[in-house]
Design a protein around this nucleic acid. Sequence first.
DNA 1: TATACTGTGTATATCCTTATATACAGTATA
DNA 2: TATACTGTATATAAGGATATACACAGTATA
Lengths: 137, 137
Amino acid sequence: MWIPIQLNETSAEPLYHQITVQLRALIVSGQLVEGTLLPSIRELAQQLKCSIITIRRVYQDLEAEGLLRTRQGMGTYVAEVEESDRDKYRLASVIPAFEAAVDAALRVQCTTAEMESILRQAIAKRIEMQSEGGGEK
Amino acid sequence: MWIPIQLNETSAEPLYHQITVQLRALIVSGQLVEGTLLPSIRELAQQLKCSIITIRRVYQDLEAEGLLRTRQGMGTYVAEVEESDRDKYRLASVIPAFEAAVDAALRVQCTTAEMESILRQAIAKRIEMQSEGGGEK
DNA sequence: TATACTGTGTATATCCTTATATACAGTATA
DNA sequence: TATACTGTATATAAGGATATACACAGTATA
């Protein structure tokens, strides 16, 4: 089984983190449905040209978040998530990022209006980059 | 000269970074006016109970950003910033933080409306914490 | 039960970040 | 010019993050 993950070798962002973030997004957005059997750590390690221990770390981290379920000898599956918990998982990575941004803004006395304006510009910029880059990271 | 900087010893955030962020905010918000002579690296190191090299790094980083001006033997001053460049400096740390937040949000298919809602909640939460904590970090 | 898959645990190499000491160099002034 | 301040340069200690190899253990099935 092939998983759409793109690694940026030049980035300072660590391998395991790039993989975790992208795999989490695939699960939490529903692109990988509940119960799906993921590739084995050796298989995914081969696909991404990294060590199986790196993949194991990713699977472990996501299991700790409750997004994966792993059984020795059998493999790793996408966990079943309560419909009601869905948004909690979806936003678990988003909310802290926004809080950090607000912190930075408050430190330099940004007004609420300014933050909203900056947000709109950031969205515009990113949407634009997405449509340009196509499938790129 | 005393500078209002509070360090959180327990935090994982490195010393030099805590100092940089708070000093930058003091400058960029106008609480330290242009031309002000900052405490010497030895003086501030003593106040914050850290090495002079740590303070030097902070001054160097902020000088690289254009916020400080330093002269061997004389000391370190708050740089004069063009009124027109003021916002650029103010927002230099804010915009990347918002872009990172938007990236995280787009990865899990957040809508613009969702992001705006999350932003409002984050602002509410932080403002509340600020007023509770008084002068705390 | 042999085989060929799964995940697991331990031990380790490598690199980067953080923070430091200490000796050096420029500036002002008594 | 001696002194007492400024910042600077070099070298290094200590810790954590990242990534790995390799030997071990569970599961399914021919």
